Structure formats: C-alpha cells, structure tokens
Amino acid sequence: MWEYLQFLWKSTNEHGVHSPFVFQFLTRGIYDFPLKKQYVHPRERLLQSAVYYFQPKTIFTTSNSFPYKLNVLTSNDILSSDFIIYYEENNRLTIDEILEQLTPHQLLWIVPTDNRKNILSKAKKNPTITLTVDFFHGILVSKRTEQLKQTFYLRSFRYFGDFKI
C-alpha cells in the first residue's frame, strides 16, 4: 500500500503529459474506456483498455498461463506480433530478452508483479527504449523512433473521486 501511495504522490493525469502519443492514449484509451458494471481488477482493466485502444492484429504473451481473456488473435512469434504482453508468471522469456527483441513498430505491455520496480528500471535504463509509461498496475514500453526518450508516471483515473485501488 505504501508503494502505491508513493506512486500517487509522483504521478499525474493528462495535464502533466507533453507527448501527443501518450496524451491520446491516456485520454481516449484509458480515461474513455467503457467500464464494465462488475468489478475488474485495475491490471485487467488497463490491459483491456490498451488492447481496445491500439487494436493490435496479433498479441504475443510471454506466459504459458496468462490469466486475462482478450478477444485478439495470439501469436507464437514475437517478431510478427504488434503487441507483446510480459507477464512474469511461468515465463518463456526474460524481460531483457523481450526488450532486446522489441521493434519500433511494437508495443510492450508489462503486467507488473512484486518485481515491478526492477522491471521498470531495466526498461528505463535500456538505451533503445524511448518511452516508458508507468500506470502502477501496468507499464507501457516502446522503441518509437519519433518519440524522445521519456518516462511518465500516470494515474489510470482522471480525478481522485474516481480513485480505486
């Protein structure tokens, strides 16, 4: 809980974003994502909203036991996938291997576990990674060539009245 409160202290909403790519994703993909009536864990809601917004043709997941259901074709080939989901449980690849194979036309979504800070640090320190967006319950990573190297800490809710852990 303390780690989440620290995250809230340094995070911002759309008013702290100066990247058009991240601003559009945050406002149209995260904040405007249609919420389901039943409770969905923030990790799942963020992942579903990212998939809904980016609409990848194929997804590669690094885990053999991925817990979330997505209505997208999955692929066994990391290089032919548009969207890569790194989930640490029962993993086929390490985060270093994923970061090395990531191309500028792919997006990496990291489903964080207890090792969140270490994984985020590796992504930020990688010289080829240009964008990391930490939502606490999910991390977006990219090698976009048109993007300056930036890291954002963003809340997945617009106002504190919408706050849910």
Rank of each mutant, 00 (worst) to 15 (best):
V72W: 01
K164R: 14
L8E: 10
F136K: 07
P112C: 14
P20R: 13
Q24S: 12
E100L: 12
V17P: 03
K36E: 06
I85V: 09
N71G: 08
D96C: 13
K37G: 00
L108I: 03
Y52D: 15
R43I: 14
A123T: 11
K69F: 01
F66E: 00
Y87L: 01
T145W: 11
V111F: 07
K117H: 08
F152C: 02
V17W: 00
Y31V: 11
I139N: 10
L148H: 14
F163T: 08
Y31C: 09
K164Q: 14
E3Y: 02
N71Y: 05
S65P: 01
H41L: 10
K143C: 11
T58Q: 07
F83S: 06
Q55S: 11
N126T: 12
H18V: 00
F54E: 02
K37P: 00
D114N: 09
E44M: 15
K69C: 01
S65Y: 02
T132I: 12
T62Y: 11
T12Q: 00
V51D: 10
K149P: 10
L108P: 03
Y53H: 03
E44D: 13
S80L: 01
T61M: 04
P56T: 14
S63G: 09
F21I: 02
F66V: 00
F157P: 03
E14A: 11
K124F: 04
Y153G: 03
R43G: 13
I78T: 03
H105G: 11
T103R: 05
T132E: 05
Y4E: 06
T62K: 05
L140V: 15
I78R: 03
F163W: 09
Q38C: 09
V72M: 03
F160M: 05
H137G: 14
